[in-house]
Simulated scan of single mutants.
Amino acid sequence: MKVAYVTLFIYSLLLIAAISYFLCCFFRNWLKTAKSLCTPEEAKDFRLDSIEDEISLIEKELSGDQSIGFCHNDLQYGNIMVDEKTRSITIIDYEYASYNPIAFDIANHFCEMTADYHTDTPHILDYSKYPGLEERQRFLHIYLSSSGGLPSDIELEQLLENVEKYKLASHLFWGLWGIISEHVNEIDFDYMEYARQRFEQYCLRKPALLGSSGPPLM
Rank of each mutant, 00 (worst) to 15 (best):
L176P: 05
L159V: 02
E161F: 14
D153C: 13
W174S: 03
W174C: 01
L156R: 09
L159R: 05
E155V: 06
Y166G: 05
N185A: 14
G175C: 04
V163C: 10
H183F: 06
I180R: 08
E193H: 09
H171Q: 13
F189L: 05
G178V: 05
L159S: 01
G175D: 10
D190A: 11
E193L: 10
S152R: 07
F189P: 03
G178C: 07
I154L: 15
K167C: 14
Y194C: 02
I187N: 12
G178K: 08
E182C: 14
E161C: 11
L176N: 07
W174L: 06
Y194D: 06
L168R: 08
S170D: 03
S152I: 03
N162W: 05
W177L: 04
S181Q: 15
V163S: 04
W174E: 03
D188K: 12
I187W: 07
M192A: 08
L156I: 06
F189H: 02
Y166E: 07
V163I: 09
Y166I: 05
G178D: 01
Q158T: 14
L168T: 04
S181N: 14
L160A: 11
N185F: 13
F173P: 09
Q158P: 02
H183M: 01
S152H: 09
I180G: 04
D188H: 11
E164V: 00
D188E: 15
E164Y: 00
N185H: 11
W177D: 01
L176V: 09
W177T: 02
D188Y: 04
S170M: 08
E157N: 12
L172A: 00
L156A: 09
E186T: 14
A169S: 12
I180T: 06
W174H: 06
S170P: 07
D190Q: 13
V163P: 00
D188A: 10
Y194S: 05
A169C: 14
W174Q: 01
L160D: 15
L176H: 05
I180F: 10
S181I: 04
I187R: 11
E182P: 07
E155D: 13
F189I: 09
L176T: 10
E155T: 12
G178Q: 06
I154S: 14
Y191N: 03
I154P: 04
E155W: 03
D188T: 15
L172N: 03
M192I: 08
M192D: 00
S170W: 01
S181L: 11
L172Y: 00
L156N: 04
G178R: 07
I180A: 07
S152M: 08
H171Y: 10
Y194G: 00
A169Y: 11
S181G: 04
H171V: 07
E186I: 14
I180V: 11
A169M: 15
D188F: 05
L160C: 12
Y166T: 03
L160M: 12
N162P: 04
Y191M: 07
E193P: 03
E164M: 09
I154M: 12
E186D: 14
S152Y: 06
W174P: 02
N185T: 07
E164F: 01
N162F: 10
I180H: 10
E161I: 13
E164K: 10
E186R: 09
N185K: 15
E182L: 06
W177E: 00
S181C: 08
D190Y: 06
E182W: 07
L159K: 05
L159M: 08
H171A: 04
N162M: 12
